Simulated scan of single mutants.
Amino acid sequence: MRIGELAGQAGTTTRALRYYEAHGLVRPRRAANGYRDYDEAELRVVREIRALLATGFALDEIRPFVACLRAGNPSGDVCPDSVSVLRRKLAEVEAYIERLEAVRGQLREQLGGAR
């Protein structure tokens, strides 16, 4: 499929696909005329990238998931490197939640004293 078709099926833009390609995450074949040509595997990769970006992952953190998919796994989160990234991200999120809860507590105290 051509880049516009992939963008449409993946719910993204051609610009985003070129950006993913520039970062080595998406690998199109090139037709004789130089056009990008994508197969169904790339659609899976792009959907995985978009889902991970929506969850707050950075492009560099996404690489192990893409590699896991390219290795033929049904999901990008079943390989050891992906699991490691997931654990690291979970620790970051939990630390952030703790900081937010502390801020919330402080704000409640301040509001309680302001009445």
Rank of each mutant, 00 (worst) to 15 (best):
I49K: 04
I62K: 02
V103H: 09
E61Q: 08
A67H: 00
Q9G: 01
A51P: 00
G24N: 10
A114P: 07
N73Y: 10
L43P: 04
L100K: 07
Y96M: 14
L111M: 13
V85W: 00
G76K: 02
Y20I: 02
L100A: 05
V78S: 15
I3Q: 02
R30K: 15
L111K: 11
A114M: 12
L17Y: 03
L43Q: 04
I62G: 02
V78W: 09
R104D: 06
I49Y: 06
K89M: 06
A7V: 05
R50C: 07
A10L: 02
T12Y: 00
A51G: 13
T55C: 15
A71V: 06
L86G: 00
A16Y: 05
A54Q: 05
R29P: 10
L43F: 07
F65T: 04
V46W: 00
L86H: 05
R108F: 05
Y96W: 13
R44N: 11
A95Y: 06
P28D: 12
V103Y: 10
R30Q: 10
N33M: 08
S82W: 03
L107Q: 03
V45G: 06
G72A: 04
G8Y: 02
Q110H: 13
R87P: 11
E109D: 14
R30F: 08
D81G: 01
E98Q: 14
Q110V: 13
R63Y: 02
Y35N: 10
D39Q: 15
R108S: 08
R50E: 10
R88Y: 08
G76V: 03
V85S: 03
R108I: 05
G113H: 13
R18H: 07
L59A: 04
I97Y: 05
I3D: 01
A51W: 10
C68S: 05
